[in-house]
């Protein structure tokens, strides 16, 4: 009974699927879907290396500090960093005193006036998180042509392609190619949009943020502040803001793997030992089989008589 019902149910599902298949295929061949501009002209992120890549990757503190500088001078006008606190900057090589003065001198955070209860601002302290540049999402959209500048704390983890994508986006602004415009005239960037082939739909609302070499003045001993260098530095900084515990994670991972490989090897040897017992029990063809032992004994005795050794 189960099989008869099952058979009919199975035929039912298969039948509907066959109908679906033919309907879809005939639709596909009668009206082939049109290729879109983003499908043809979207580019995969550029190849770019960071010191934090790989299982032994470490952050480069000097680079992260330069990246922080780029963030503060360029990105912070529109993008927040709400999950990062100033105290976290100690992790990228600033001393507690530096963090304190940097928070107090460079940042203002919203607060409530303790006497009047009104909204106001005060100098930041290390335990504050980075302030949002806009009081709310509506204000952010109003100031940016209805495009919302996302918070950057997690941006590297929140975008397919990760850090290389962020770097490519920052350095990828260009004029749309003539070929693209000839093929898809509607792909030309509209007002307030900028062509960027690394962005999903090719037109991004963010104006090119890093436009010229030397836009940010790096301190002494730093590499030249080229557009690529600044983009790379700020991307490295954003890798850190997205995953500040990465170094301890990788370090712990290596230690645990070393421990586990020894433990696994020992456990495997123990397993072999335990099972040697069981295998002897059911391996009557082995050298320890009583029958074989007897044979060997006999062979040895014969060999002794004939005065030669025996191969076991």
């Amino acid at each position: 009974m189960v099989r008869i019902i099952g058979f009919l149910v199975g035929l039912g599902f298969v039948g509907v699927l066959v109908i679906s298949l033919f309907t879809d295929l005939s639709g596909y061949f009668n009206e082939p879907p049109q290729e879109s501009a983003e499908y043809k002209y979207h580019l995969e992120p550029k190849e770019v290396d960071f010191s934090s890549d790989g299982p032994f990757g470490r952050f480069d503190d000097a680079q992260l500090q330069r990246g922080y500088q780029v963030y503060r001078e360029v990105c912070a006008a529109c993008h927040g960093l709400q999950y990062v606190a100033f105290r976290n900057l100690e992790e990228i090589g600033y001393t507690p005193e530096q963090v304190k003065s940097l928070a107090a001198n460079e940042w203002e955070v919203p607060t409530i006036d303790p006497e009047l209860g009104e909204e106001t601002t005060r100098a930041a302290i290390p335990s504050d998180t980075f302030p949002n540049p806009y009081p709310n999402a509506i204000a952010a959209r109003a100031a940016n042509n209805n495009a919302y500048p996302p918070d950057l704390s997690l941006i590297v983890k929140a975008r397919e392609g990760g850090a290389p994508y962020i770097y490519s986006l920052l350095t990828g602004y260009q004029e749309p190619s003539k070929k693209l415009l000839a093929e898809f005239p509607s792909a030309a960037p509209g007002t307030g949009l900028y062509h960027n082939p690394y962005f999903a739909n090719l037109n991004i609302a963010m104006p090119p943020p890093i436009t010229s070499d030397g836009q940010v003045t790096y301190g002494e001993g730093a590499p030249e502040a080229t557009v690529e260098q600044m983009a790379k530095d700020v991307t490295a900084f954003l890798i850190w803001t997205a995953e500040p515990r990465m170094e301890s994670r990788k370090r712990a991972g290596i230690a645990i793997l070393i421990f586990l490989s020894i433990a696994t090897l020992l456990a495997f040897l123990a397993y072999r030992n335990v099972w040697a017992e069981a295998k002897r029990q059911v391996a009557p063809k082995g050298p320890l089989d009583p029958e074989n032992m007897a044979k060997r004994e006999q062979a040895k005795a014969e060999a002794a008589e004939e005065g030669r050794g025996v191969e076991g």
């Binding site: 421990f259 433990a263 020992l266 456990a267 040897l269 123990a270 030992n273 335990v274 040697a276």
Partner: peptide, 15 residues
């Protein structure tokens, strides 16, 4: 054998 078994069990215990 005993030594390896004990070592394996204690290693796992430490872990």
């Amino acid at each position: 054998r005993d030594f390896i078994n004990i070592a394996a069990v204690s290693f796992a215990g430490v872990g």
